[in-house]
Design a protein around this nucleic acid. Structure first.
Lengths: 179, 179
DNA sequence: GTCTCGATGTATCGATTCGATATATCTATA
DNA sequence: TATAGATATATCGAATCGATACATCGAGAC
């Protein structure tokens, strides 16, 4: 997670730790703590994926190395579709992934959400194996279903967009295939 | 998180580890690993919040103790409104919290979401301090806003419901106050 | 009958992340 | 010239994750 976040942000230009955190906050990843960020920076430096450039004062900027760029590509193309935050992080750096891989990734994520939806619907139907649930639990289960449905619809939009990207790049593509 | 999950589920009746995990899955908490669950069980047993009853075969059921019930009440009444999963977990066991505290908790959560929404809107407006963002990042930012708005609307429903609960219990309540 | 496979069930390990805290610097302003 | 708040790096113990190991049990194949 943090590896992806750091590498993805440094792909643009060198940045220091505090700046990384601020940028992640802007991207909607609010709960990024320094207790995770700084260890991640040292980890990535030790592995040779980033390099520290000491700046004025106490600031320490990091820049992405060549192998770091490869590592970023590897993580972006990996199939981690289960955890929401991880997928969103990947999406935030989709620009660095080739269009064909983007489409594959979006479809995988969609499949995952559909199976999650089925699980949620089943749980609600059978009143979750236990007796009937209280109002708040029922509300939670319903909300989970609604949220997941909305996420699937959102992915459908993204998939449609990714298809057009593909078509522009590879005009001889067979159009109209189903998801 | 896991303390709340375990204590909340054992409040009903004794259960063993595997059963706890299955029940959490039904409640929509898919990513509960045994590597977190079993350590949590031992932790809670050591603190005297739960007791192990050895069952037939390898099964080990745990029951909630008196102090465990107090600890559950304490956690449920705490103000951890920032992390989504944590709040949802609290909601799943709202039945064990007094109605007045429920209403307070829901309002706190709403305030938190409103401030999160403002942050997200500001980020999108200023194209996140950096230059203009690519399509996928923009989609992510937009989706974050939509999701948060929808969560706030959901909380409004829950708050309305919690108010009626209060009125039934305390009929002399001043009605019609704003959130 | 017994073999095998999948579900049930407990457990541990290294790595990662969290949450709280400490501390130094720089800048505006009272 | 305090002093308060934003900027900036860092660390520590505890909790969580993800993978893996391993044992039991029941059902169906053969």
């Amino acid at each position: 997670m943090f590896d992806l976040a750091v590498l993805g942000l440094l792909r643009n230009r060198p940045r220091h730790g505090y700046e990384l955190k601020a940028r992640l906050l802007e991207l909607g990843f609010a709960r990024v703590s320094f207790g995770s960020l700084y260890p991640a920076l040292r980890r990535l430096e030790k592995r040779g994926f980033i390099e520290a450039l000491r700046q004025s004062g106490r600031r320490k900027a990091y820049k992405l190395t060549g192998t770091g760029e490869q590592e970023l590509a590897r993580i972006l193309d990996s199939a981690e579709d289960d955890e929401d935050r991880r997928f969103n992080m990947r999406l935030a750096f989709f620009q660095y992934l080739e269009p064909a891989a983007r489409l594959r990734s979006l479809k995988r994520r969609r499949n995952h959400l559909v199976s999650r939806l089925r699980t949620a619907q089943t749980a609600l139907q059978y009143s979750t194996t236990e007796g009937p649930v209280d109002h708040y639990t029922a509300a939670l289960l319903q909300h989970n279903i609604g949220t997941t449905e909305s996420d699937i619809a959102w992915l459908d939009q993204l998939i449609a967009y990714a298809r057009t990207e593909q078509e522009v790049e590879v005009p001889r593509t067979l159009t109209g295939g189903n998801i």
